[in-house]
Simulated assay, not measured.
Amino acid sequence: MSFTSRLTRRRSLAAAGTAVVLAVALAACGSSKDSDSSMPGMDHGSKPSASSSSAHAGHGDHGSMPGMDHGGMDHGAMGDGLADSKDGYKLTSTATELAAGKDTEYKFRITGPDGKAVTAFADDQTKKMHFYAIRSDLTGFQHLHPTMADDGTWTAGLSALEPGTWRTYASFIPDSGAGKGKDLVLSRTVTVPGDAQKTPLPAATTSAEADGYKVDVKTDLVAGMTRPMTVSVSKDGKPVNDLQPYLGTYAHLTAFHEGDQAFAHLHPETKVEGDKGGPDLAFQAMLPKSGHWRLFLQFQTGGKLHTAALTLSVG
């Protein structure tokens, strides 16, 4: 074989070897579990929700929306709260109708994957169970901490309800079983008979008043993304510096989405230091859907609880 033929053959073999190496590398990249196939900045911790219910077949599954980690609990992983069951846990109640115009009780149970009533719950913001009720037009907000009987039956004492369709939410963390440590929110609807008069949702704003206090919200929220939010509390034009701890923090913020009543729970990051909170409270907020959200900020001063409500527009 001539020198020229040998040189040509070596170059051909080298090229073939390079092609094989390149092909293997590309195949490895294509099969990598860490492949960055999503848009950067959109992954805020993914714990997909399996929540679904035939009663909510018209609603999409928003439980996969990423959330925030507050004190070790991923509150975004709780889903949108529109299902009565999730991860084998179910909110059950025989109540389908509640009386209008007078205080009433709502009884319910949480059953686990084994079908039995759950009786072991972990503390979440100092309580074993957080219970919410709100009408379909996002009026009549109530946040309660019901009591549990030995058989796992919870009783929530509701203030007088206006006629209409209401949704009740149970927010809890199982302290045993397959769901131990999971932050869950389940809900059901209940009817209050009578002539229901719908109240239009107030226009979007960044401030609200309650009991002489003014609450200002500064944020630029985008649906499905975690963004900073600052809530400032003032009174008579002066900053408030005497916020008292309420449920282990200086404020409790709950949000409901207009139209489907999707649920979101936001926690302030501001460190609690006695009865001297405020005037500014920092949040890392994530609301999973665009549109209007009705926010309810609860805070305490002088031993009295205040609730400020405002409508926030999320793009």
Score class of each variant (00 low, 15 high):
281 L>I: 06
265 H>Q: 14
255 A>W: 01
100 A>V: 06
293 W>N: 02
276 K>V: 12
44 H>K: 10
169 Y>H: 00
165 T>I: 14
208 A>G: 14
149 A>R: 11
233 V>K: 07
78 M>K: 10
74 D>W: 02
16 A>C: 12
307 T>W: 03
148 M>W: 09
29 C>A: 13
205 T>L: 10
22 L>V: 11
298 Q>H: 09
88 G>D: 01
44 H>R: 13
204 A>G: 13
286 M>N: 14
279 P>L: 08
253 L>N: 04
258 E>I: 03
123 D>P: 05
78 M>C: 10
90 K>I: 09
226 T>C: 07
191 T>R: 07
174 P>A: 05
241 N>Y: 03
12 S>M: 14
106 Y>G: 00
39 M>E: 13
86 K>H: 11
192 V>I: 12
288 P>K: 00
122 A>F: 09
225 M>L: 15
120 A>M: 12
237 G>W: 08
308 A>E: 02
257 H>K: 00
20 V>A: 06
36 D>E: 13
6 R>L: 12
264 A>Y: 02
162 E>W: 07
248 G>D: 10
65 M>T: 15
100 A>G: 06
68 M>Q: 15
104 T>W: 03
143 H>A: 01
246 Y>F: 14
31 S>A: 15
290 S>M: 04
153 T>L: 10
100 A>T: 06
286 M>W: 08
171 S>N: 12
201 L>W: 05
77 A>K: 04
8 T>H: 12
131 F>P: 04
278 G>S: 00
183 D>E: 12
260 D>R: 03
310 L>D: 04
260 D>I: 01
31 S>L: 15
104 T>V: 15
75 H>G: 04
266 L>C: 00
175 D>G: 15
118 V>L: 13
241 N>L: 07
224 G>A: 09
288 P>A: 04
253 L>P: 02
132 Y>P: 02
81 G>D: 10
162 E>N: 13
195 D>Q: 01
119 T>S: 02
285 A>L: 06
309 A>W: 04
314 V>A: 02
270 T>N: 08
19 A>S: 09
145 H>L: 11
291 G>E: 05
177 G>F: 06
186 L>H: 10
127 K>H: 15
14 A>Y: 10
195 D>M: 01
191 T>I: 07
152 G>K: 07
203 A>Y: 09
60 G>P: 07
72 G>Y: 03
149 A>F: 07
161 L>F: 08
288 P>E: 03
223 A>N: 02
312 L>R: 09
170 A>V: 07
57 A>N: 10
68 M>P: 05
253 L>E: 05
80 D>Y: 03
77 A>L: 05
310 L>S: 06
72 G>E: 09
159 S>Y: 08
62 H>E: 11
228 P>C: 02
250 Y>W: 03
173 I>M: 15
163 P>L: 03
233 V>F: 13
69 D>R: 12
